Amino acid sequence: MPERPFLSVGRLFRAILILALLLVYVSCDATGPKPFESEVVVESYQIAGEPAAPVRLTQSIPIDSTYDINDVAVRGADVRIEKLGEGGEVEGTIPYTSDPDSAGFYRPSTAIDGSIPTIEPLGTYRLRVVTEAGAQIRAETTVPDTFSIVSASRDTATYRADEEIAFRITSSRTPGRDQAFYIFSTESLDPRKENLVPLVADFLEQSENSVLSDFVITSSPVLNEAGYTQNADGTLTLRLPWVVVTFYGPNRTRINVLDENMYDFIRSQTAQQGGGGFTPGSIPNVLEVVEGGAGIFGSMASVRREMYVARP
C-alpha cells in the first residue's frame, strides 16, 4: 500500500490545528472573549529528506459558521518557500502553484527534469505568501536532522499481551535545542470495523459524532527525555504505547522528531485544554509562528516501520 506522506502527516496534525484555532477564538482573558477577525490559516509540514510538501491556505470563519472548503479556500495567492543560508540570505526559492483539483492547496512547481526540490536536514526555510487581497504571511522553520531505526524488538505483537514494541533509533539533532522531542503515529493498513480493538470499538458504538476514519491514524503524546532511554552507544530506545494502536492487523508506525514550531504549537495547545499544570487565568495563548496569519508552518524528521498487531 503506497504511502502519501503529506496526507498521513496532515491528517495526524489537522485535528490539533483545528482545535487549537477554536480555542484561540473562544478563549477568554481579563478583557472577555477575543473579538473574531478573519485571517489566513497556513498548514504545511515539511519532512527532512523528502520532496517539498504542499501548503494549504484557508480563511478562518466564525465558530458558529458552516465550514465548506470551497468557501474558505484562499485562491490566487503567490506562494513560495525560500531556503535560507546561515546569515539569513536567500540561497534558493521553491515556487508553488495552485492545485486546480484541491481547493486551497498549493504544490511545489517541478523543475525542468520533473523533480521537486528536497527538504534538507538542518536547513532553514521561510514561507512567503501574498494573497490577492494584499495580505502578507511569513513563517520560518529549521528542519530537524534525519535519523534511522537500528532495530525493533519485534515486528509482530499480540495486542496488550506482549510488551510494548521497542524501537532502537539513532539520535536526531535539532538546532538550538538540547534534546529532541518525538511523537509516534500509527496508521492502520486494513481499517475495517471488525479489526477495531475493543476499547475503540466500544467508544465508536456509543459515540454520535465519531466515524471509523477518525481512528485510522492516531498519535501519542510528545515524548521528551523522560519518555525514552538513552543507550551507552548513543542510540535511543522508544517504546510504542498501546494507546496509539486502534486496529488489529497490519499497521504502519512513524516516529517523528518535531521542530521547534510544531513542538511549541502542540504543547501550548495541550495547556489550553488544561494539561499543562497552569492555574486558572494563567493559561497562555496557543503559540504560533505565522506572521500576518495563523496556523502552522513546521517541519520534522521521520522514519517508519510496518508491524502486525495480533488479536489476544
Score class of each variant (00 low, 15 high):
residue 176 G to H: 03
residue 256 N to R: 13
residue 170 T to F: 06
residue 69 I to N: 15
residue 107 R to Y: 02
residue 19 L to H: 09
residue 55 V to N: 02
residue 108 P to T: 14
residue 42 V to A: 10
residue 190 D to Y: 03
residue 57 L to Y: 11
residue 36 F to D: 04
residue 249 G to H: 07
residue 270 T to Q: 11
residue 245 V to E: 02
residue 147 F to I: 10
residue 250 P to N: 05
residue 287 L to E: 10
residue 254 R to S: 14
residue 255 I to E: 02
residue 203 F to N: 01
residue 63 I to L: 13
residue 178 D to L: 14
residue 47 I to D: 03
residue 251 N to F: 01
residue 267 R to L: 08
residue 292 G to K: 13
residue 238 L to W: 01
residue 77 A to V: 06
residue 53 A to N: 10
residue 75 R to M: 04
residue 33 P to L: 09
residue 141 T to F: 04
residue 161 A to M: 11
residue 195 N to D: 05
residue 53 A to L: 06
residue 311 R to T: 13
residue 11 R to A: 10
residue 247 F to H: 08
residue 70 N to S: 13
residue 173 R to L: 10
residue 194 E to M: 05
residue 141 T to R: 09
residue 299 S to I: 06
residue 114 G to E: 04
residue 256 N to M: 15
residue 291 E to L: 12
residue 7 L to G: 00
residue 257 V to S: 08
residue 59 Q to H: 12
residue 292 G to F: 08
residue 160 R to H: 01
residue 303 V to R: 14
residue 45 Y to L: 07
residue 60 S to E: 05
residue 117 P to A: 14
residue 164 E to G: 10
residue 232 A to S: 15
residue 128 R to T: 02
residue 176 G to Y: 04
residue 97 T to K: 14
residue 237 T to R: 04
residue 12 L to T: 12
residue 31 T to G: 07
residue 27 S to L: 00
residue 84 L to N: 08
residue 135 A to D: 14
residue 43 E to H: 05
residue 250 P to G: 02
residue 192 R to W: 00
residue 186 T to A: 11
residue 264 D to P: 07
residue 89 E to W: 06
residue 275 G to T: 06
residue 77 A to H: 09
residue 37 E to I: 04
residue 234 G to E: 02
residue 192 R to M: 04
residue 127 L to W: 04
residue 105 F to D: 05
residue 173 R to K: 13
residue 190 D to W: 03
residue 173 R to Y: 14
residue 32 G to F: 06
residue 230 Q to S: 10
residue 6 F to R: 02
residue 256 N to W: 04
residue 167 F to H: 12
residue 169 I to D: 03
residue 48 A to K: 03
residue 57 L to I: 10
residue 40 V to I: 15
residue 95 P to M: 03
residue 2 P to D: 14
residue 238 L to S: 02
residue 88 G to L: 06
residue 290 V to T: 15
residue 207 S to E: 06
residue 64 D to L: 08
residue 268 S to N: 11
residue 102 S to F: 10
residue 67 Y to H: 12
residue 191 P to Y: 05
